[in-house]
């Protein structure tokens, strides 16, 4: 479970139960994000206690944050998933947008470093 291009990389580390995001994620539209969404949902299927590490994700466009929002809603609807988000304080978009995701799922744990 590894999606890699010149601009970004998204991969699942089963040992850490963590999906890592890295680089500039600027895919064109929600459809283009479906492989990333599938990777996330597959990871949740394997282990319902999952961490998304976004600290190395410098940019995420609007379609990307939509995909992430939809994922959070899906996870909340499942009811049995414990979701952790790890962000970086020095990445401006993360300090703003990740808190909004917490509004979609109050049980979501947010950690900045």
């Amino acid at each position: 479970m590894d999606i890699k291009t010149d601009d970004y990389r998204v991969w699942y580390d089963p040992e850490a139960n963590t999906v890592f995001f890295q680089g500039f994620l600027r895919l064109d539209g929600m459809e283009a994000y479906s492989p990333v969404m599938s990777l996330l949902l597959d990871a949740v299927e394997k282990q319902p206690q999952i961490t998304l590490n976004l600290r190395q994700l410098e940019f995420l466009n609007s379609s990307g944050i939509s995909m992430l929002s939809m994922f959070v809603v899906k996870v909340r609807q499942r009811g049995d998933v414990q979701l952790y988000l790890q962000g970086a304080e020095n990445v401006l978009w993360q300090t703003k947008s990740l808190k909004n995701l917490q509004r979609l799922m109050p049980g979501l744990q947010l950690e900045f470093a």
Binding site: F59, L60, S62, S69, W93, N100, L101, L104
Partner: peptide, 12 residues
């Protein structure tokens, strides 16, 4: 989600 996307757009 709409608010998130709008704020996200601004901050990006």
């Amino acid at each position: 989600i709409v608010q998130t996307i709008m704020e996200h757009g601004d901050v990006v």
